[in-house]
Design a protein around this nucleic acid. Structure first.
Lengths: 223, 223
DNA sequence: GCTATGGTTTCGGCATGCCGAAAACTCGGA
DNA sequence: TCCGAGTTTTCGGCATGCCGAAACCATAGC
């Protein structure tokens, strides 16, 4: 659009989604994301992603060397944190104020994170009492971009016999989320790793066997 | 877009805005809207409107004869009422639950009306106790498209000496809205028409002179 | 009845974002 | 070192919605 002078901060649904997705990929995993994984997450063709990433790079939100991975610049990270904050605050709000269950909030938050005004969002934050994590246990960055995160291990990597409380459950799959809830695997639940292969988890006095995806979806408190 | 089989109900921000604007034009005025007036209201070029109106007509939302005016079909009216309901419920909610003043809600509602899910909207309706009009006095259609509207005269058309209560204030201009508030011209205020040309209005024990635009922005109860 | 004026429509163009196919590249294994 | 499988990028295309300029129409006034 011609009405945008060069160098101005260009946002918009699409930019916001790319940047947020790039950020969340590295939130619980070290290696930066590549075009095909990003395309996968966004539900787009790889060619579309390459194209868009070039535009993001031109706007200084992302750095990307040809045939390499994609990382956020400080400006990109700031925008990403802003979007993550919005998403998680909205999820929390839907659960607290409207009785959504935590496997239902994702889609609605995905839309609203782009459309609520700052004013409304801060009013919601206020009403909620400035929560620091959402119903899944994911950290809610503060308005100025500070993230508080508890030390945690992924269940998959926890040693046999390890005892801890659940501090995070990935919201990647609604099905899994519902399953966990039905098995009493919820935030702050005390659990014990009985065995690693196959993975057996004791919750209360019940032992549950979990698969690969599940084991990569739960984080336990460390210390 | 290829993924849409012919004849399916196509919605989307743009369609929703056109249809809603066509509807609200005739809400307090009889003659149907023409392309240039519609373009004016939407902030678009007339040529863009002609184009889009053709698409709406092809989808059965609107009827339009070349060089003539634009009217809603039953399907179009249904969609329009849905959008009006959403807009006004959201405005009411922002005022009631977040302390927005009524001259501040419009822009936010303009965005959110397209993005809140039905579920969230109905939850909000519930929390508000199913209001039948918004903070300006505009009717909120019910979920099944029924509109309750009080009998009213536009202030401009009220006879000298007429006494009534304010049942509607047009939200067309924020400036005007703020002015009215400062003069105690609010919903349910009891007012008297002292003279017509120039228009003098008595509110409480104060007489206020109003201009053309103001006189076309206020409706008084009839009977 | 004719024409001028103003609203309406057509047309070519542009920007954004997406796609699939084909070309370009990387890197591990032989 | 060379090859090939798997990624990444390029390229032409498409859909949506918008614009301005030019062509078109309706009708009021003469």
């Amino acid at each position: 659009m011609s009405g945008r002078h060069p160098g101005s901060a260009v946002t918009g649904r699409v930019v916001e989604d790319y940047v947020k997705t790039i950020y969340t990929h590295t939130e619980w995993q070290e290696e930066p994301i590549g075009p095909s994984a990003l395309a996968e997450r966004l539900g787009l063709a790889a060619s579309s992603v390459t194209e868009m990433v070039n535009k993001l790079a031109a706007q200084g939100l992302v750095s990307h060397v040809r045939y390499g991975t994609i990382t956020l610049t400080p400006a990109g990270r700031t925008l990403a944190l802003r979007m993550v904050r919005r998403h998680r605050l909205i999820e929390t709000w839907l659960v607290e104020s409207f009785g959504y269950s935590w496997d239902e909030v994702h889609d609605e938050a995905e839309v609203l994170e782009h459309t609520l005004s700052d004013r409304l969002l801060e009013a919601i934050d206020e009403q909620l009492g400035h929560p620091v994590h959402d119903p899944h246990g994911d950290a809610i960055p503060s308005a100025d971009g500070v993230v508080m995160r508890p030390a945690a291990v992924m269940l998959r990597d926890a040693a046999e016999g390890f005892v801890g409380t659940v501090v995070r459950i990935s919201d990647h799959s609604s099905t899994l989320l519902r399953y966990f809830a039905s098995e009493r695997i919820v935030l702050d639940a005390r659990v014990q790793v009985i065995s690693s292969r196959p993975l057996m988890l004791r919750v209360g006095d019940i032992d549950i066997q979990l698969g690969e995806e599940a084991a990569a979806s739960i984080w336990l408190s460390l210390g």
